[in-house]
Amino acid sequence: MNQPKATLFRHAVMQTLILLGFAIYISYLSLSGHINYYIAPRMQSYVELSAAVLFLMAAYHGYHTYRQLRGLPSSAHFHHKPPRSALARGVLNSLFLFPVLLGFLVPDSFIGSALASKKGLSLAGPIHTRQIPVTLSSSVKVSGTSLAKLFPSDKYTGEYAKLGMKLYQTDHIQVKDHGYVEILTALQLYPGNFGSKPIDISGFIYREPSMKPNQFVIARFNIQCCTADAMPLGILVEMSGGDQLKTDSWVHLSGKLGETSYEGNPVLKLDAEKAEPITAPDNVYVQPSLDFSFEDQL
């Protein structure tokens, strides 16, 4: 136990620096806006608050380490004994320094098509609702009109059917960040209903090996808290000259909706007429709008 005082203090100084490193990295992410690459907006303030706590802890730890180093009275008593071997101390400190160094040395980037293929992007049908065989009789109850027949629903898909009807009645579907998840779900639930409906949508380009050269997917990631729970969603696009667009580049597409089959399933498709390269939006991921409040802006 009689570790040299110098070792103890070196360890304490290291811990102060680690706390400070975490706090500075989070502050940097927050100021640069790169925090959007890692954390969903609703969680960001909590992460920023942790940075404040870490600053406080670093200041406290540093102050008392300094006082104890100088032999001044200090109310803090740190019991934490560093590991006895220099190697173990090195490994422990490296473990904590690793995320900080990774943070500063590897450029911040948002996730794209490489992870989309790992997580699996479903083009065929809704990802958020269970696919339950829909019988037309259940749809009659909704209103009995021909529109309701086009958008059959049961109690599980009712919200999306209503949204689908609304989208059907708009002249031009503008897909924005807010409502992205719900609109795509509603469109994909009824892929045959939106023939030649004009649409505008932005996203990154994702490709699968089995796609034709003129095919790609316009996609976004939907995240709840962090990128670990990210789920990609997107629409299959067909465009002449589409092979010129680079995978992972961001584009704004204008075109018309339609239906095609992909890997044996009927899927929604977008016949793109115009592709405009854009920079990735600041809020690079989308979040579900659980209250469907975007509907008023359609």
């Binding site: 989070i26 890692y38 992460v47 995320p99 990774l102 962090c226 990128t227 670990a228």
Partner: peptide, 10 residues
């Protein structure tokens, strides 16, 4: 990095 930093921050 994108996943690890995200998991830790979260």
């Amino acid at each position: 990095k994108a996943l690890f930093i995200s998991i830790i921050l979260e």
